[in-house]
């Protein structure tokens, strides 16, 4: 049953990946400007030689098939801008850093968010609720880049507690992790609160209370588990996004992660890097979404896996 379901999903995943690669490839080619468009136009012959070197002189469909071949063999080609690196190297250098930063931020966001949300729900419409929600809303409405600059200004520059930038040890990871976790933490907190309030109003919680169970037990054993489903829904894309880097945070704190490649490759029209990072990101994304869908059924047995909608 599970195996059949997984097989089907993996088949769908491959189709999704194929469509993502195809769509990205053609959108990329449709966007004006190329890797050799520059403020100082080089002589036509040199441009032609460069295009020949990178096989950009081939007809579009041939370039496309070349690229598909590259993806299948996981050879993503050389970078146009960073001549000393291949895309594979860039990903294998940047991803561990981004993943490290992302994992720390993710842990902070999930635990912090759930704790804030649960407190707010248990003290619904009391001051604890409002303070937790004000913190959460600040996290939502002050975007990461402003928060990052604040943290850097106060913790590093003014108080000298932590390093300003660079990536050379645990203390270097604290500020970027905090800045990166703010928005997801706030969102998770709000989602958890909203669901907890709903769940706490349900009959089975009243039953549990009537049985004389301790509030703590009720919260942990009965309420949280049921309140987490929407949070899990949100986690799939969040994990994919956060593990593959955050451009602005990496830039401000000088973190050598993968986030900048996503943005810079596009502004540089570094075709191979655009495609490489997209493929890499998409794989993580579809796998995470699959895991989330499976996690649904584990958290809420009422949801059926494969034939969820069949009557």
């Amino acid at each position: 049953m599970l195996i059949r379901y997984l097989g089907k999903r993996i088949f769908f995943m491959l189709i999704s990946l194929f469509l993502i690669v195809t769509a990205t490839f053609f959108i990329m080619k449709a966007v004006p400007g190329g890797p050799f468009t520059s403020e100082k136009n080089v002589p036509e012959e040199i441009k032609a030689a460069l295009e020949a070197k990178y096989k950009l002189d081939l007809p579009l469909h041939e370039q496309y098939f070349e690229y598909l071949k590259g993806v299948i063999t996981w050879d993503l080609g050389p970078s146009f801008t960073e001549k000393s690196s291949t895309v594979n190297e860039m990903i294998s250098r940047g991803f561990p850093v981004s993943a490290h930063l992302g994992a720390q931020a993710l842990l902070l966001a999930i635990f912090g968010g759930i704790i804030l949300g649960v407190i707010a729900a248990l003290k619904h419409n009391k001051w604890q609720d409002y303070s937790a929600m004000v913190i959460a809303v600040l996290g939502l409405s002050v975007p990461g880049f402003i928060l990052a600059s604040f943290y850097q200004y106060f913790f590093a520059i003014q108080w000298g507690l932590l390093p300003i930038a660079k990536w050379e040890g645990f203390e270097y990871t604290i500020l970027p992790s905090l800045a990166l976790s703010a928005s997801p933490m706030a969102f998770i907190a709000r989602l958890t609160r909203s669901n907890m309030i709903e769940v706490l109003g349900q009959d089975y919680i009243k039953t549990a209370k009537a049985k004389g169970l301790h509030t703590f037990t009720i919260t942990v054993k009965h309420a949280i588990r049921n309140a987490l489903l929407p949070v899990i829904t949100y986690l799939g894309p969040l994990i994919a996004n956060i593990l593959t880097g955050a451009f602005v945070i990496e830039r401000i704190f000088g973190v050598p992660g993968l986030g900048r490649e996503f943005v810079l490759s596009i502004t540089n029209r570094d075709y191979t890097v655009i495609m490489g990072t997209t493929v890499f990101y998409s794989i993580i994304l579809v796998v995470m979404i699959l895991i989330v869908d499976i996690a649904y059924t584990l958290i809420d047995p009422r949801i059926k896996l494969a034939d969820a909608g069949r009557e």
Partner: peptide
């Protein structure tokens, strides 16, 4: 050489003696 892209960060690091 460090490689910090953000100009504000760079200036802060200079002011901090780094």
């Amino acid at each position: 050489f460090s490689m910090v892209e953000d100009e504000n960060t760079e200036l802060s690091m200079f002011e901090n003696g780094e």
